[in-house]
């Protein structure tokens, strides 16, 4: 059972961001899998060095991820990843 990935509706102002069921054993793999079909999304979520943007938050099963730079958090089948707009930075 793959991981469910979904995005804040705030992103829909800028680009299509349908949720998806994607494969991967780490958060990095999950996101990279998604970016293959939606490459524009990468620059909205990650900075030039591949870290989570300062004012973006990512939740793994309702808890903030631990590694915002390396995205090494382990992801298991059936997990849910949600990319949110942080309350800061508007």
């Amino acid at each position: 059972m793959p991981t469910t990935l979904s995005f804040t509706p705030n992103l829909a102002r800028h680009l299509d961001c349908p949720g998806a069921a994607v494969e991967g054993s780490t958060l990095r793999e999950v996101l990279e899998s998604y970016f293959e079909s939606n490459p524009r999304m990468r620059g909205y979520v990650l900075d030039d060095q591949g870290a989570v943007r300062k004012h973006v938050a990512i939740f793994l099963n309702q808890a903030p991820i631990g590694d915002r730079i390396g995205l090494s958090d382990s992801v298991a089948d059936g997990d849910a990843v949600f990319v949110a707009q942080a309350l800061s930075g508007g």
């Binding site: 705030n10 992103l11 800028h14 620059g43 909205y44 979520v45 900075d47 943007r53 004012h55 973006v56 707009q85 942080a86 930075g89 508007g90």
Partner: peptide, 8 residues
């Protein structure tokens, strides 16, 4: 310069 989602 999007506040959350970077430069576009």
């Amino acid at each position: 310069a999007l506040g959350h989602f970077g430069v576009k």
